[in-house]
Computed example of a mutant assay.
Amino acid sequence: MRSLILGTSLLALGLSSTLAADKTVYLAAYGGSTETLFKEVIIPKWEAKTGAKVVYVSGNSTDTLAKLRAQKGAQEIDIAFIDDGPMTQAIQFGFCDTVKEETYADLYDNARMKDNKAVGIGIVATGLAYNARMFKEKGWEAPTSWNDLADPKFKGKIAIPPITNGYGLHALIVSAQLNGGGEDNIEPGFKAFEDKIDRNVLVYEPSSGKMSELFQNGEIAMSVWGSGRLKSLADQGFPGEFAYPKEGAVNLLIAACPVVGSDVPELAQDFLKFMTTPEMQSYFAIQKGWGPVNRNVTLTSEQIGALPVGPDRVDKLINIDYTLVNPARGEWTKQWTRRIER
């Protein structure tokens, strides 16, 4: 079946005793700049190390999960690279094999997913991104709390993604938690949006490109966004900064799992371990803005910037229980459309 996807494999470049040169690993992961980084840096280095070949199957987390479901019982994918929410579903559906314990040796505890069925490759913090220049011009203090989303002075100056986007979903859950609810009682979150936050929101924007434009055009002062997204915008010269709310930023774990039924399980495990090495983690941090999951990564203060790096930030991140969220998300989306984005 795989011959339809790949006609030939590369010759071995440095075969180890346990990894065969004529083997091919199928990696399903994000497109865009992530695909570029993998194809230009990560994959060539691993292929040189093992002599094996990697075929990159591009798609977002939803796409990859759909492929796993469609190929159930005859998987072509060996490694699935998925955000933590959909990854929880992949684990529940039985698509993910157990990651070898040795892979976790130098990693933060929150790099483990349920039953070690997936490993974190990078950490993104969901918090408050803001236009530091606008804040200075207005004489505003930097945001310090999720409750700042309800501050009347930001009326019409905030953008939040809808809850079909992970950042928007996090905002809703945290709003519920701060008002006596949580993943198992989301109503306080909806009430907080209806009564306090919505009046300040200019637009519920799902597109990262459009969110960047809103900042650059001076239309918004603040958004609920990811640390990596803000870093990318700031790297272009925008005077943006990222605030970790005192209640905690939310952990968005970029994860990968070895797929059950892979015909190259040892290679899949080796590639997972390779992605968590300090060298590869540095590439993810510097080029993608993902906080390292490996404790031994060394970055300069300029490279760290707003990234979730070090125990002071990483250990304080809020972890979402997706075993409660995923079954309810469809109903939440209906409520969101009816009550918030009406």
Rank of each mutant, 00 (worst) to 15 (best):
M1N: 13
I5Y: 15
L6Q: 15
L6T: 09
G7A: 13
A12R: 14
T18W: 09
L19F: 11
L27P: 05
Y30P: 02
S33P: 04
T34K: 06
T36F: 11
F38M: 07
E40R: 14
V41D: 13
K45N: 11
V57M: 14
S58I: 00
S58P: 06
K67S: 11
K67P: 04
K67I: 04
D78C: 06
I79W: 08
D84Y: 03
P86S: 09
T88Q: 14
Q89R: 14
A90M: 09
I91T: 07
G94A: 10
T98Y: 07
V99P: 10
V99T: 02
K100C: 06
Y104V: 00
D106E: 13
D109F: 11
A111D: 02
R112G: 03
N116R: 12
K117T: 04
K117R: 15
V119W: 02
I121H: 08
G127N: 05
N131A: 06
N131M: 01
N131T: 01
N131W: 02
M134F: 10
E137N: 13
G139N: 07
W140Q: 13
E141D: 15
P143A: 09
T144F: 10
S145K: 11
S145W: 05
W146D: 09
L149H: 07
P162N: 13
Y167P: 01
A176V: 01
G180C: 12
E183I: 05
E183R: 10
E183L: 07
D184K: 15
I186A: 13
F190H: 02
K191S: 11
F193W: 15
F193T: 00
D195H: 06
K196A: 12
D198W: 04
N200V: 01
N200R: 06
V203F: 11
V203I: 10
Y204L: 02
S208Q: 12
M211K: 11
E213H: 11
E213A: 09
F215Y: 14
F215W: 05
Q216A: 13
N217A: 15
E219N: 12
E219Y: 05
W225I: 01
G226P: 02
K231A: 03
K231E: 03
S232Q: 12
L233R: 03
A234H: 05
P239E: 00
G240K: 03
F242T: 01
A243E: 08
A243C: 03
Y244I: 00
Y244S: 00
Y244N: 04
P245L: 03
V250M: 11
N251Y: 06
V259T: 02
D263W: 03
D270E: 13
F271G: 06
F271Q: 01
Q281M: 08
K288G: 07
K288I: 05
V293I: 08
S301M: 08
R313M: 03
K316Q: 11
D321A: 04
T323C: 07
A328R: 12
E331L: 07
K334T: 10
W336R: 06
R338T: 12
R338E: 15
